[in-house]
Every structure is written in structure tokens, then in C-alpha cells.
Simulated assay, not measured.
Amino acid sequence: MDTITLGDVEITRVVEQPPAGLPREFVFPDVPRRDWEANATWLAPDHWRPEQDEVLAVMQTWLVRSGGRTILVDTGVGNGKERPYMPFFAHLDTDFLHNLARAGVQPEDVDVVVNTHLHGDHVGWNTRLDGSAWVPTFPNARYLLARADFDYWNPLNEHRTRSGRKMQNVFEDSVAPVHEAGLVTLWEDSYVLDDALRIDPAPGHTPGSSVLTLTSGTDRAVFVGDLLHSPLQFVSPDRCPSFDEDEAAATATRRRVLGWAADHNALVLPAHLAGSGAAEIRRDGDRFAVEEWAAFA
């Protein structure tokens, strides 16, 4: 498995689906092809396929072992989900639980699940199908969800969202069952997991988007969820994907979090980054640049 150690914390990359291409104009409709071509020497082939004009993304979970606990950061798409308006997430049958077992973790071993936000590709394995019912996949875990996202995506609240129908069924099959099972902690402001890990708000992509910051010894890292969908956003932090609910807020948050990461030599771990999966960055004027890719294969 792809594992690194930062201070006293171990991080393992558990892949649900290997990198797949999505049309650039679907993911970044407002970012012209010339921006990608200008950075093709380092974006291709891991993050952009010029011939197909596709952005590559991987579905993965970060397995974190800290303070004697087993923590999952985001849970991917899940198997058997009905997603009528997101067909590439529908009715999957992946080996995710087998891949998790290869990392030495059974569902009953998980102590904490951190959902950085509640989009369907971050909460899917919160639940699994048992007969005709969706039940918690990790029955002994405490699921940490931002109240802002829980309230925003709850269909009973009838919020008008940019995602619209793309979120159909997500709350009902992947969020509500763990809440009804009494496994959810709805946090506000911030949440401290242990001496090394803290969750903080990072709104914009969704109202309750969050980042998980790791501080252990001299090492720093930040799990940023969907704060960025491509390393192009390191060099163009004001560029937004079509999935951001509030682009202005997402841009401000991205600049703030990436600025902290650059100033503290922190490893940046997005949810979907292909290739090495993570990077250390540095400031480059009012932008950022990759200082070093992570050691994940």
C-alpha cells in the first residue's frame, strides 16, 4: 500500500477507483484550453490528457492512524448507489473494502470517519446495502459531519443548490442512515480529534466544506477535500470547477489554505489528485508552485 509517516501519524492512500478522465469542459468550463497547454509539461500525463482533453481524477480515501485510532478521510462513491443524474457514480461494484483490508483495516476497526463535505463521491461508503436497507459500513465509527453541510444538503430544507439533481438520493442513502443510527457528530466552528488532528471550516465548494490539519512533531499536512480538483489550481488558484457552490468563497478559502500550507511546508492532500496524490507547495508571487510531489506511488 501507499503509506507515508508524518511525525507520529501514518497516512495510507486507499484507492476506490483508479484515475479516470472527465471532459475538461465539464470539470472546468471557465478555464480555457490554453491554460492547460501552458502547463502541459507537468500536468500531462498524470493530471491532463491533451489528446482527449480530459482532466484525470482518482476516487480514494485517506486512511489515517493517529493516537491509536483508525480514521478515514472521505469514503468515496460507494457500491450500488442509485445516481440518476451522475451516471458515472451509479451502481458501482468496486473492491474498496478489499483494498481497505489490504491496508489492515476491517470495517469494524474504523474509529472515526471524517467527511470533508457531503457530495456523493465523499460519503458513498458511509453506508452499504444490507438486503434492501442502507446501513453504516463502519458500525463502530463516529462520523464527523459539518452541521452547515448537513443542513444545506438535507432535502427537507429545500435549499436551491448549484448541484441540483446531481445530489439526488445522496443524503437519503449515505448520510441519513448513519445519523439515524446515532453515529454522527455534527460539529461547528472547529473540531479537535487529538493532539495531531483538527478539522476547520473551509467553505465555498460547499457551505460546510472543511479541511483536516495535521500537526505532529515538525511535520505538517492538510487534507483539503475538494478545495482543488487539479494541480492547475496551485498555479491558478482563482480558477474554479463547475462543482463549487460559491466560487468567490471557494477562491478565498483556497488562497487562505494554500497560503498556510506554503508557509508551513505542509503536505497538501486533495481528495482526487491523480499521480502522486499530494504535494508540498511554495509561494510564487501571488500564486503557488509545486515544491515536491509526495512519496505516494
Score class of each variant (00 low, 15 high):
103 A>Y: 09
107 P>N: 10
109 D>T: 03
109 D>S: 05
114 V>K: 11
115 N>P: 04
117 H>I: 05
117 H>Y: 04
122 H>E: 02
122 H>P: 00
123 V>S: 02
123 V>H: 02
124 G>Y: 02
124 G>R: 06
126 N>T: 13
127 T>D: 06
127 T>F: 01
128 R>N: 05
128 R>P: 02
130 D>M: 04
133 A>E: 15
134 W>G: 04
137 T>K: 09
139 P>R: 03
141 A>V: 01
148 A>W: 09
149 D>L: 07
151 D>V: 14
155 P>V: 03
155 P>K: 06
155 P>G: 02
156 L>A: 15
158 E>P: 05
158 E>G: 08
159 H>Q: 13
160 R>I: 12
160 R>S: 13
161 T>R: 15
163 S>H: 12
165 R>M: 08
165 R>C: 05
166 K>C: 05
167 M>V: 12
174 S>I: 03
174 S>R: 11
178 V>E: 07
181 A>K: 06
182 G>K: 01
184 V>M: 02
185 T>V: 15
188 E>S: 06
192 V>W: 10
193 L>H: 13
194 D>F: 00
195 D>T: 08
198 R>F: 00
200 D>F: 00
202 A>D: 14
203 P>M: 07
205 H>R: 10
205 H>Y: 15
205 H>P: 05
208 G>R: 12
209 S>P: 06
211 V>E: 09
212 L>Q: 11
214 L>W: 14
214 L>T: 12
216 S>K: 02
217 G>P: 04
220 R>L: 01
224 V>S: 12
224 V>A: 11
